[in-house]
Design a protein around this nucleic acid. Structure first.
Length: 471
RNA sequence: GGGCCCGUGGGUUAGCUUGGCAUACUUGUGGCUUCGGGAGCCAUAGACUCCGGUUCAAAUCCGGGCGGGCCCA
């Protein structure tokens, strides 16, 4: 009999909403829409994701900074496109104590307009470039649509890297580096992805172009990050210039790179199953949980062996927890499966007599008897195999969901990711979006040449445009 | 932006039409007993979203706030 049951994974919305709370990731009862409490287990996972990001930033020479949360309206208003894009989404601070403020302040929705006035002070010479900084902070956006834990929130746990370069080419090199960072991260997070160059009508407010990092979760595209080439669109209004070797002054070229707790949402939604979460080993707060199987009269003996096994495993470099609660073993199995612990070890009298343990892996739900003296290398292999398996099987799934559609204007059933020939005109793209009730994701990261004609206007197709339903 | 619906112990919920002691399960706590896939028994704790109105009497009827969900643009 199963009590406290999780909805089946096929009812994705119900399943997702339940699991984020039941697995101890968040508490949605905080009384502001879109602002949830990070509970300890979930926060530990998020901090692990952050630390992977920090490692990559350090490796590539980015310095961590921390800018103020508040931005004066006067700075925010400098870049016209940017305000147009974010104006409706910002929270305003209009009062301080009992006084109305002369210059209103806003809670950053993103930090361009906080950072760039400082960039203009910091950057003087070509030797100050490239400038590469990042921060991990909360940003705020007043979402009017339906919110969802980790996927659409009003206080965003945000990673943002900002760079400044002497010319367009150097900024382009930065974007190549960003893509390499992306690939390293996604392997550890076990998230398959596609990079799309967003169509002009959907690029970031103020960007020259935007790359969207997209993954597929339960039939819809989830954007889990973005990379923007600003060219000199911001450096002009914010007057960010440097003096080159010849004493001439130039505006810098800039890029940004953004990600958020959507990464966590993607991990939950992509890997989870009817039993609950499945966490990639790199992120799991506990990689191994040991469940003792006590027997009448031998309880202390079994607990003792479990504890010393845990010490041994910790010394081997694993994150381990021994579950000594006064619950029946089966109850504990469900508890840790729900929380996505990659490996479980069961240990009772039977194992003690045979010098073995029972090892269970969460991704395949397989159980196997392993000799105690072979355990550490066995588990080391198993954890890396779990990481590989999670990534590969998710990637395989995503691959099968893209289909070339000859005539989207007549199609009945739209594939999850729809590939369409396109002439390059905005009007045609928008018509397809409207007809198929999807959003244009953009073109492929590496420009594709298309043969044939645009299915809307009949002119020769230049490339392919991708469409999907999005979160 | 427009429309519809909902709010009862920590969680899930009955009761609301027709006003009168608030129901059950789960969870929590203490104990006994058990432990290789969510055991059982005993005891115990815990709720009507807020403000106002109608009434002898409001979870129930009316108005407003706050919070949440859904649909359309």
């Amino acid at each position: 009999m199963r009590l406290d049951e999780l909805p089946p994974r096929d009812d994705f919305n119900d399943w997702y909403n339940e699991i984020v709370e039941k697995a101890g990731l968040t508490d949605k009862r905080y009384p502001i829409k879109g602002m949830n409490v990070w509970t300890p287990y979930g926060w530990k996972v998020m901090l692990s994701i952050d630390s992977l990001i920090r490692n990559e930033m350090e490796r590539t020479g980015h310095d961590e900074v921390n800018f103020p949360t508040l931005i004066p309206e006067s700075e925010f208003s400098k870049e016209a496109e940017h305000i147009k894009g974010f104006g409706k989404d910002v929270y305003w601070v209009t009062h301080a104590g009992e006084n109305e403020l002369d210059v209103r302040l806003l809670l950053r929705p993103t930090s361009e307009t906080a950072m760039y006035p400082m960039f203009s002070l910091w950057i003087r010479s070509h030797s100050d470039l490239p400038l590469k900084i990042f921060q991990l902070v909360s940003t705020f956006r007043y979402e009017t649509k339906q919110t969802r834990a980790f996927i659409r929130v009003r206080e965003i746990h945000f990673f943002e890297a900002h760079t400044a370069h002497r010319d367009y080419e150097d900024a382009e090199r930065q974007i190549k580096e960003d893509l390499e960072i992306l690939d390293n991260l996604m392997r550890k997070l076990c998230i398959p992805y596609e990079v799309h160059k967003r169509p002009d009508w959907d690029k970031f407010a103020g960007a020259y172009y935007s790359l969207g990092i997209d993954t597929l979760m339960a039939g819809r595209i989830l954007q889990i990050g973005s990379i923007h080439q600003y060219r000199d669109n911001f450096s002009k209004p914010y007057d960010i210039t440097y003096e080159d070797e010849n004493g001439e002054h130039h505006h810098v070229h800039q890029t940004t790179y953004g990600m958020s707790e959507r990464l966590f949402g993607a991990i939950i939604g992509i890997h989870g199953d009817d039993h609950g979460l499945i966490l990639p080993p790199e992120l799991a707060p506990y990689q191994i949980v040991i469940v003792p199987i006590p027997k009448k009269g031998h309880q202390d003996e079994v607990y003792g062996v479990c504890n010393s096994l845990a010490d041994e495993l910790k010394a081997g470099g694993f994150r381990v927890h021994v579950d000594l609660r006064e619950l029946r073993p089966g109850n504990k199995y469900y508890h840790w499966e729900l929380r996505g612990v990659p490996v479980r070890i069961e240990l009772g009298m039977r194992d003690m007599e045979n010098a073995t343990v029972m090892v269970f892996r969460r991704d395949t739900m397989d159980k196997e008897v392993v000799k105690r003296d072979e355990l550490i290398p066995y588990i080391r292999n198993m954890l890396s195999d779990i990481e590989r398996n999670l990534y590969e099987r998710a990637k395989e799934k995503m691959k099968g969901h893209t289909a070339l559609v000859e005539n989207p204007m007549e199609i009945e059933e739209v594939p999850d990711i729809m590939k369409v020939r396109w002439c390059g005109d905005e009007e045609c793209g928008l018509k397809i979006e409207e007809r198929t009730d999807t959003s244009a994701l953009g073109t492929a990261e590496h420009e594709e040449e298309a043969e044939g004609t645009c299915p809307v206007c009949g002119k020769p197709a230049k490339t392919y445009l991708y469409f999907a339903k999005t979160y």
